[in-house]
Amino acid sequence: MSVLKIVGLTADVAGRHVLDGVDLEVSSGEVHVIMGPNGSGKSTLSHAIMGRPGTIVTRGSITIDGVELVGEPPSTRAKAGLFLALQQPIEVPGVSLADALVAAGASFDGIEEALASEAAAVGLRPDLLNRPLNVDLSGGEAKRNEIVQMAVLKPAFAILDEIDSGLDVDALGAVARRVEAATEEWGLGVLAVTHFHRLLEELRPDVIHVLAQGRIVETGGPELAHEIEAEGYARFLG
């Protein structure tokens, strides 16, 4: 049982204050969803947690089981148990998926089988596994590829940044089911960022947070997502 805890996190991007004191706590096996309008800071929160260059944490703390991650390089955060599925996965020419995952600590023995089985689980064409990382993949293929990587690396916590964008309904279902299964399989804790409702039908979140103007302005159960679906974000933007 692990806990990802974020306390009073503030962050700047290009000199602009984007996060203004975010508090969150996700435990193993839980699915948390962060919803919010465009520009509310959702992607910045994902990047701040993983330590992406250009996202400057100015205050606050990010810990896994009490171990501070702010100031640590992304590789250290990943080793501590974090995984980030990017909204726009980066093309890495000349580097194969298998080589990258083995370098990241996945077992060399059985990597091909693990990739094939995880690709099948999310409906990623097996021949795409042989392409260099994300090169010439469609948006939806790249998203499925992110989930394949997550499932092979088996992190303690996965940050899913708009994993639903670019996926059709069937693909979205397959991806959400794989993530949901991981919460049982190895106790994956999930922090999924989205501004669409449709992800939630398959992912079955435990907690919904509304992020607006860089802060969590409301936290509730799945019913909060239904309310936003019906009424929009107007009441949070006051």
Binding site: G51, P53, P74, L84, G105, L153
Partner: peptide
């Protein structure tokens, strides 16, 4: 960043 975020030193 992408590779390091996977845990690669």
């Amino acid at each position: 960043f992408y590779l390091e975020a996977r845990g690669i030193e």
